[in-house]
């Protein structure tokens, strides 16, 4: 399936883009992360969370939406 991945803040600097579409054949968030690490090794040592359907998800969670968002540490306020 085709996924749209968004990167914010520091993560967009690491990937060099704020958004991209990728073709992905796995099931879980962790499998997706492995794929992304192959493209962007710089992501591996970064602290970030993953959101799907506007909620944070865990690596073991299944992908249920074609929009996945990588969020660096929050800095509101």
């Amino acid at each position: 399936m085709e996924l749209k991945i968004k990167y914010f803040g520091l993560l967009a600097e690491v990937t060099g883009c704020e958004e991209e579409s990728i073709f992905f054949s796995g099931n879980s968030i962790s499998e997706l992360l492995e794929t992304l690490y192959t493209s962007y090794s710089g992501l591996k040592d970064k602290d970030f969370q993953v959101a799907q359907n506007m909620e944070l998800v865990s690596p073991e969670d299944k992908i249920t939406n074609t929009n996945i968002v990588l969020l660096p540490p929050f800095a509101g306020g």
């Binding site: 803040g9 520091l10 959101a51 969020l71 660096p72 540490p73 929050f74 800095a75 509101g76 306020g77």
Partner: peptide, 18 residues
């Protein structure tokens, strides 16, 4: 999910973490 880019006087930056 709000992100803050701290910009220094010499225009370099770092990312703020709460």
């Amino acid at each position: 999910p709000v992100f803050g880019k701290e910009i220094f006087e010499d225009s370099t930056h770092q990312w703020k973490v709460n």
